Amino acid sequence: MVGPMQAQAGEDLIERIRTHPDDGDIVGVAANDLLSELYAGYPVENLTRLLHSGDDRILPTAAWLLSELAELAEPLMDEVPALLSSPIRTVRYDAIAVVLENADERHGPIVAQVMNLSGDPESAIRWKVLEFLTEASIEQLEAGASALPPGQVRELAEWLILQDTEEPDLPGIVIRLEEGDPVTRLFAAAAAASLSDEQDTSLLQRAALVDQEEIRSFAQERLDEPE
């Protein structure tokens, strides 16, 4: 139960973000304070006032808040498709994190939308898609694959699922990493990362040599993680 003082604090913070969109200092402090209020029970549905403000200067803050809420963002999953389609890079980036935390078998079209961002023109978005493909559950991947139309991304999604549900095709992963087009390489890198462990990092090492910045940096970051 949210008390009246807590509710008023949340309302004030949302209004502060709405009325000072160009003041990074004010918005930054207000967003962090609002995040605390949301974790304390202020209803996440109130973020629709930021999501639907019509001001592109506010949308990145709203998307960031959703991405920081983890599973608490689930009631607003219907808002995510629009965020994934946003022309603003940081909004798309944060929306992918929301999908990873909250998507289940009901959200196949949203997962499919993330998978289609494997061809996004922005390297940072492709990096985030690679992280999603690596970290997503089989149930999430299957939901997304089933919602994709026939074509390359669906074929790659179904192939990626097989690497985890059947005997992995290690030579096929390497061939796709080294000889595939950029989207194929991204899915192959996800398979490489998913199958690598502390005892065998050979696939990740291959991925770290790929001439594709988001794959190379993602693989190297995984290799550099402390055991």
Score class of each variant (00 low, 15 high):
47 L>S: 03
62 A>L: 06
46 N>Y: 13
43 P>E: 04
37 E>F: 06
42 Y>S: 06
53 S>V: 01
59 L>Y: 01
57 R>E: 11
47 L>I: 02
45 E>D: 13
47 L>D: 00
53 S>M: 04
42 Y>N: 05
69 L>T: 05
39 Y>K: 15
67 S>L: 11
40 A>I: 04
65 L>H: 07
54 G>Q: 07
41 G>Q: 05
46 N>F: 10
52 H>Q: 14
71 E>M: 09
64 W>E: 07
47 L>P: 00
47 L>Y: 01
66 L>D: 02
70 A>T: 10
70 A>W: 10
73 A>Q: 04
59 L>A: 03
61 T>K: 10
58 I>D: 02
54 G>C: 08
53 S>E: 04
36 S>D: 15
70 A>I: 02
61 T>E: 08
54 G>Y: 03
72 L>R: 15
72 L>D: 12
48 T>H: 08
36 S>H: 14
53 S>K: 05
66 L>T: 02
67 S>A: 15
55 D>C: 03
41 G>I: 06
44 V>T: 06
38 L>F: 01
62 A>Y: 02
36 S>L: 14
51 L>K: 01
39 Y>T: 13
67 S>E: 09
51 L>S: 01
60 P>K: 12
62 A>R: 03
72 L>M: 13
47 L>Q: 00
64 W>T: 02
72 L>Q: 14
69 L>R: 11
63 A>Y: 07
54 G>S: 10
71 E>N: 11
36 S>E: 15
71 E>V: 11
58 I>E: 03
73 A>E: 00
70 A>R: 15
59 L>M: 07
47 L>G: 01
67 S>I: 05
47 L>N: 00
63 A>Q: 07
44 V>L: 06
45 E>W: 03
72 L>I: 08
44 V>Q: 05
68 E>V: 06
38 L>T: 00
60 P>W: 10
64 W>Q: 09
62 A>I: 02
72 L>F: 08
67 S>F: 07
58 I>A: 06
52 H>E: 10
58 I>V: 15
36 S>Q: 15
46 N>T: 13
65 L>F: 09
60 P>Q: 13
41 G>M: 07
62 A>V: 02
57 R>I: 07
59 L>T: 03
67 S>T: 05
73 A>G: 02
70 A>G: 13
47 L>W: 00
49 R>V: 00
39 Y>F: 15
43 P>V: 09
64 W>Y: 12
44 V>A: 06
68 E>D: 12
48 T>N: 08
53 S>Y: 01
70 A>D: 15
54 G>L: 09
40 A>H: 10
65 L>S: 08
56 D>Y: 07
40 A>E: 12
73 A>L: 04
46 N>M: 14
37 E>H: 14
66 L>M: 12
42 Y>K: 11
48 T>G: 04
60 P>H: 11
44 V>P: 02
66 L>Y: 04
39 Y>S: 13
47 L>M: 06
56 D>P: 01
55 D>I: 01
38 L>R: 03
61 T>I: 04
45 E>K: 14
60 P>C: 12
40 A>P: 03
55 D>M: 05
58 I>N: 04
71 E>Q: 12
66 L>V: 08
39 Y>M: 15
62 A>K: 03
43 P>Q: 11
48 T>V: 14
64 W>D: 08
72 L>H: 12
41 G>P: 07
57 R>K: 14
71 E>T: 13
